[in-house]
């Protein structure tokens, strides 16, 4: 795909993708709104600004690969994939319906562009490691990007995988922590605190790059720096806001698994049209 390097242009794409996400979720009536909106700026930077990929080379051996370990952010991924041309945008209106190609969580057999199935939290980083190990054995130049939720790091398997990546000295994997601070039952710090999270990743042998996950230039330079790290894995620790871009959804745990009503959708679209 032809990539965009201009942060302003990428911001506009992200805004349009937010519209797609909200329409998709309002139509389906179920799905995860908050975590899709917190992740979308980073996904936009990856898919439209940095990753070597495209629907014309879906199985290219040297492509970059993205794994959405926080699989409930599927609407964000679907909006990105549709706008990249992996499938027709009309499918977005079928999210979560019987016989739709868009399952509630990423399901690789049915959705073009989805590399592995995720949704059960904690397993994506291990799978991403496995893909990175295969790429290294084959001397391929692709990078594997794996996005995790902050609540997801409560899963023990994340830390098993973090150890594996550093032990194997995988420098072709980039972890991304979508640190929006909220999980289903409330603030992560109240449910089961994960701090000091940056220190934890460093202690597990990772380089850590801390960014504002909604600041497009910071995201782009964070990706560039992370890809350049040699001899060890790197985590982009992205501070994000759950529900980002829609004022009445921001920092609301209730919008983890809630979708907008038609009224809320209309209000949200007005807000987004003025940004």
């Amino acid at each position: 795909m032809k990539l965009v390097n201009d942060a302003g242009e990428l911001r506009k794409i992200a805004r349009d993708l937010r519209v797609d996400i909200l329409k998709m979720l309002a139509a389906s009536g179920s799905g995860h709104t908050g975590g899709s909106l917190s992740a979308i700026d980073i996904l936009t930077a990856l898919y439209f600004g940095r990753m070597n990929h495209g629907p014309n080379i879906p199985k290219d051996a040297d492509r970059d690969i993205f794994v959405l370990s926080k699989g409930h952010g599927a609407p964000a991924l679907y909006a990105v994939l549709a706008n990249c041309g992996y499938f027709d945008k009309s499918h977005l209106g079928t999210l979560r319906q019987l016989n739709s190609m868009l399952s509630g969580h990423p399901y690789s057999p049915s959705t073009p562009g989805v590399e592995v199935s995720t949704g059960s939290l904690g397993q994506g980083l291990s799978m991403a490691n496995g893909i990175a190990m295969a790429l290294r054995l084959d001397k391929r130049k692709g990078t594997v990007f794996c996005m995790m939720g902050d609540g997801e790091t409560q899963e023990g398997q994340i830390w098993e995988a973090a150890m594996t990546a550093s032990h194997q000295k995988l420098d072709n994997i980039v972890g991304i922590l979508d640190n929006n601070g909220l999980q289903i039952d409330g603030w992560v710090r109240d449910v089961k605190g994960i701090e000091p999270i940056g220190d934890k990743w460093r202690a597990f042998g990772w380089d850590v790059i801390e960014i504002d996950g909604h600041d497009m230039p910071a995201i782009l330079s964070g990706i560039d720096k992370a890809v350049a790290v040699k001899g060890k894995p790197c985590l982009i620790w992205a501070h994000t806001v759950k529900g980002k871009g829609v004022s009445f959804m921001e920092n609301k745990a209730s919008f983890h698994g809630l979708t907008p009503t038609q009224d809320e959708l209309a209000k949200a679209l007005v807000e987004l049209s003025t940004t």
């Binding site: 291990s126 893909i131 190990m133 790429l135 023990g156 098993e160 150890m163 194997q168």
Partner: peptide, 28 residues
């Protein structure tokens, strides 16, 4: 040795990593 991965005492990680290797075209 290059095609053998000791995953330590971490069976869950081992199985998901094997899945990733398979997604990457290997026969784990």
């Amino acid at each position: 040795p290059d095609r053998f991965f000791n995953m330590g005492v971490a069976e869950q990680d081992m199985i998901s990593t094997a899945a990733g290797l398979a997604a990457g075209g290997k026969i784990p």
